[in-house]
Amino acid sequence: MEKRIRVLVAKPGLDGHDRGAKVVARALRDAGFEVIYTGLRQTPELITEAALQEDVNVIALSLLSGAHNTIFPKVLELMKAKKMDDVLLIGGGVIPDADIPGLKAAGVAEVFTPGTPTSDIIEFIKANVK
């Protein structure tokens, strides 16, 4: 069998660079995953549609803009509408600790704050992809 875990890495929001997202993308590739990289300034609509066409197991969002409380719920809502119930949504970036429980309750599988080793993200994906 030629199965590979597929992960869509996107950087929604309007702010500048995607260095963090690229580091994660490379680490995931080195772990043997197929990473679909869609780049900067993605809307939730675009992210979920790309994820559907690519049939990914995981959507990984990198956020710096503080827009997590609007972007995550929107992505989750679209995932539900597209019946992507077996897709894991994870996120990383500057997200206040206080907001994390709420995001998880809403359906975000895990949130990785800055400084988390990429190996933690890889382990989490391996353990949780169905």
């Binding site: 590979r4 993308a25 490379r26 995931l28 590739r29 080195d30 772990a31 043997g32 995953f33 197929e34 990473v35 679909i36 990289y37 869609t38 780049g39 993605q42 609509e45 675009l46 549609e49 790309a50 066409q53 690519e54």
Partner: peptide, 28 residues
């Protein structure tokens, strides 16, 4: 990658405007 078996599939970056068009389907 011959070393890890993983890959970075980045062609979609150049095609993002097509993603929302229901008459287009892109697969990497």
């Amino acid at each position: 990658s011959p070393f890890s078996g993983g890959a970075i599939l980045g062609d979609r970056i150049r095609m993002n405007e097509l993603t929302m068009d229901p008459g287009v389907f892109i697969r990497s």
